[in-house]
Design a protein around this nucleic acid. Structure first.
Length: 464
RNA sequence: GGCGCCGUAGCCAAGUGGUAAGGCAGAGGUCUGCAAAACCUCCAUCGGCGGUUCGAAUCCGCCCGGCGCCUCCA
């Protein structure tokens, strides 16, 4: 599986993470089903944009690329995108790119011109098949800049001759750098072979990038390139596409990660089908976070009842190891429905809905069996097995990998013991039926962001 | 102008031929000393108009509205 990664000239915005999270989930699911998946995401670290930006910043292309790549990797890690097997860089594959370019010239699909090398789209009758475009009509669009060194306006550069001061590598056509599309063909071919199963990327890459990848790859190898093309919908902000070339729309991923839980952000991308556009509007993330509370409520409940942490649970990693049946009503069926949704073109939105139903089924079971007050080992074990199913399915979506980070500093040594102490005192007050004082304590704590929950088996506190 | 996508409750969203998942918000209820949490119940006929069909949100046509690509873009 090959997914187009970023051109690293400026830090990642939210939109850049849609694809990685979606394809991370797709890989998780394929692995869950028992497939072996090798996932490649490229880093394009040389290109006109980088040259311009580096000059603006007064730095080198190399430094800029490294800095932006680091930001990208940090975002991936924060979001739990950990299934990428290879991240090849264009600058480390110049030899392959040159060889492929030469091969295309030898086969008559490309021609050198003025220090550049262009792919000749008229030599590939199938050009346009991916994006349903007719090369002749591309001319009619007239938005392609005319160039005297190109034979056909639709021809695209495989190799660009360099001007003095620009990053350059030696080649049979003089010093230069790769064109934009060739690195993906060269690197996917090197790592995955001439033909592979899945190629992904944003919807905005269909043309010209993927179209060009297909022609140059198939012209070179004579074999079909990717079997399946998956294009994820784009992120919009108030209806407008988020794009680096439209600075008003850019929302930096790094900024969002400061304020929001990674699970919330994953849900933003997974709550709807991957092909649909996702609109990022005000309050959207808060809304999702409120919804996620139900899960955390169940995790807390599970921990109170069993002493085990949901996050430490060991759940089946493969479908074959999971259990289809459950002593708890609906659990087996909900698991089936979750998997059916995923089987249907990775319908994460539908699958996500089943997860909520599963939470409700588990709470319903815990309520009806009075798990808080009874000590029936059988019921507790059944509850636990149901929670394991929840964990099994959550893992597929890459959710709830870690306990939620508290927004405050509850981790300090004093807060928890002090709150415990207050709760103890309040419990005594309540026993004495001094509800006015007990309610005062609860109200004051609420103002500090501490919520108290009185249960049959005691009182617990939680921080917002 | 060409290619393509979308329009489901106040908001987000699944469903693509058999009488509408789920989430947020809202209303009522159970539990509770009161709350919180949890659970239960309620809240849409699917942009509009025609057509096909025993039957359509789901298929076809037209119209209205929004968006993307055709130029760098995840």
């Amino acid at each position: 599986m090959y997914v187009c990664g970023p051109t690293v000239y400026s830090n990642s915005h939210v939109g850049h993470m849609v694809g990685p999270v979606i394809f991370d989930t797709i890989k998780r699911y394929l692995v869950y089903l028992g497939y072996e998946v090798t996932w490649v995401v490229n880093i394009t670290d040389v290109d006109d944009k980088l040259i311009v930006q580096a000059q603006k910043d007064g730095t080198t292309v190399k430094d800029l690329a490294e800095r932006v790549t680091d930001d990208y990797l940090r975002c991936l890690e924060a979001l739990g995108v950990d299934g990428i097997d290879h991240m090849p860089k264009a600058t480390e594959h110049i030899a392959e790119i040159v060889a492929m370019t030469q091969g295309l010239i030898d086969k008559g699909f490309a021609y050198p011109s003025g220090g550049d090398v262009y792919f000749d789209v008229t030599r590939a009758p199938e050009y346009g098949k991916l994006s349903h475009r007719d090369p002749e009509e591309l001319q009619a669009g007239a938005r392609i800049e005319p160039s005297s060194i190109k034979r056909h306006p639709g021809d695209f550069a495989l190799w660009k001759g360099s001007k003095p001061g620009e990053p350059a590598w030696e080649s049979p056509w003089g010093p230069g750098r790769p064109g934009w599309h060739i690195e993906c063909s060269a690197m996917s071919m090197k790592i995955l072979g001439e033909h592979f199963d899945i190629h992904g990327g944003g919807l905005d890459l269909v043309f010209p990038h993927h179209e060009n990848e297909v022609v140059q790859s198939e012209s070179f190898s004579g074999k079909p390139f990717a079997t399946y093309w998956l294009h994820n919908g784009l992120l919009t902000k108030s209806g407008k596409k988020i794009s680096k070339s439209d600075p008003g729309t850019v929302i930096l991923m790094g900024d969002l990660l400061q304020k929001h839980d990674p699970d919330t952000l994953r849900c933003l991308f997974l709550a709807s089908h991957y092909r649909r556009p996702i609109d990022y509007g005000p309050g959207r993330l808060d809304e999702l976070a409120r919804g996620l509370q139900a899960f955390h409520g169940l995790f807390d409940r599970f921990e109170r009842l069993t002493g085990e942490s949901f996050h430490a649970l060991d759940a089946p990693k493969h479908k074959a190891d999971g259990r289809a049946d459950s002593p708890i009503p609906d659990v087996g069926e909900l698991r089936d429905r979750f998997l059916e949704a995923m089987d249907d073109d990775f319908n994460t939105g539908g699958a996500f809905g089943e997860l909520y139903e599963l939470v409700r089924a588990l709470n319903r079971f815990a309520d009806s069996h009075k798990l808080e007050s009874a000590t029936d080992p059988g019921s507790l074990a059944a509850f636990r097995s149901g929670v394991v199913v929840l964990k099994e399915l959550s893992q597929i979506l890459g959710l709830f990998r870690h306990p939620r980070a508290r927004a405050d500093s509850a981790q300090d040594k004093l807060t928890a013991p002090l709150l415990d102490l207050l709760v103890q005192l309040r419990t005594r007050v309540r026993k004495e039926k001094n509800f006015a004082l007990a309610d005062d304590i609860r109200k004051s704590l609420a103002e500090l962001g501490v919520t108290l929950e009185d249960r049959p088996d005691g009182t617990s506190w939680k921080l917002d």
